[in-house]
Computed example of a mutant assay.
Amino acid sequence: MQERTGIITFKGNPMTLIGPELKIGAAAPDFRVVDATLTPRSIADYAGTIKIISAVPSLDTPVCDTETRRFNSEATALPANVVVLTISLDLPFAQKRWCGAAGIDRVITLSDYQERSFGLAYGVLIKELKLLTRSVFVLDAQNIIRYIQIVPEVTHEPDYAAVISAAKGLC
């Protein structure tokens, strides 16, 4: 499996990403994750929609909490054909509990804990931490990658305006 360095840091410390470097304009790789009921989900489950895929290390951390709440809020102003998926390695039960406590009703949380399928396919699995790095991908309705944001410092938030603008530009 390909390893990439010099892309991200965690609290200032350089980290290694496992998996390929994806390119804008390329077909999005498929992945296999599970939802809150342990039902397997893949990119095909969201066919025909514009997808904002937000990868986070753990919902139970301050920045991931803030980011997911922000995308939940932003989703209310997006057209119905746009879905926001947040993927982490948190257990589905923990994701469901967190969403209930946080009032998350527009973001779909998915867990990559079983196979690391998303993390490896999208090149966002942090080797040293065994967590997903903070990143956002926007896919069009045909699953072509139209926007990529790998946040350079894992403890920082993404550029929300750029993500939302990229998604709205596809509507």
Rank of each mutant, 00 (worst) to 15 (best):
C99E: 10
I52K: 03
S88H: 00
T61M: 08
A77P: 00
A121S: 13
Q114S: 01
V136A: 15
T86Y: 00
I145T: 07
C99F: 08
L132V: 06
R70A: 13
Q95A: 06
A94V: 12
L78M: 15
S58P: 01
I104K: 00
T61N: 03
K127D: 10
L91P: 00
R116G: 00
L125W: 02
V63G: 05
G103W: 06
Y147V: 09
I145R: 00
P62Q: 11
K51S: 15
N143W: 13
I87E: 07
R106E: 10
R116M: 03
V84F: 05
V136Y: 12
L89W: 03
T109N: 09
I126T: 11
G103A: 09
T66P: 00
I144G: 10
Q95W: 00
P57E: 11
D60F: 05
T86I: 01
V63I: 14
A101P: 01
V83H: 09
I104G: 02
F137T: 06
Y147R: 05
N72Q: 09
Q114H: 04
S73Q: 13
T68L: 09
V63Y: 06
C99D: 13
Q95L: 07
I126G: 02
A102T: 07
A141I: 15
G119M: 01
P57H: 04
L85H: 10
S58H: 04
E115N: 15
L89Y: 08
S54I: 01
C99N: 11
I144W: 05
C64V: 07
D105Q: 08
Y122A: 02
D65W: 14
F71H: 05
T86V: 04
F71T: 01
L131A: 07
V82G: 12
I145F: 05
R106I: 07
I50N: 04
S111D: 11
D112P: 06
S117L: 05
A80M: 07
A55M: 13
L132S: 02
A75F: 06
D140E: 12
A101M: 12
A55R: 06
P92N: 09
D112S: 11
P79W: 12
A55P: 08
I126K: 01
L59C: 08
V138Q: 05
R146A: 10
I145A: 07
T66K: 15
N81H: 12
Q114C: 02
F71A: 01
A101E: 11
C64R: 02
L139H: 12
D105F: 07
L120E: 07
I108V: 14
G103Q: 09
N143G: 08
T76V: 15
L131W: 03
L120D: 02
Q149I: 12
Y122V: 01
A102G: 06
R70G: 09
W98T: 06
C99L: 07
R116W: 06
T49N: 13
A121F: 11
D65Q: 06
R106W: 00
G119Y: 00
R146W: 11
D140P: 03
I144E: 10
P57M: 08
A75K: 05
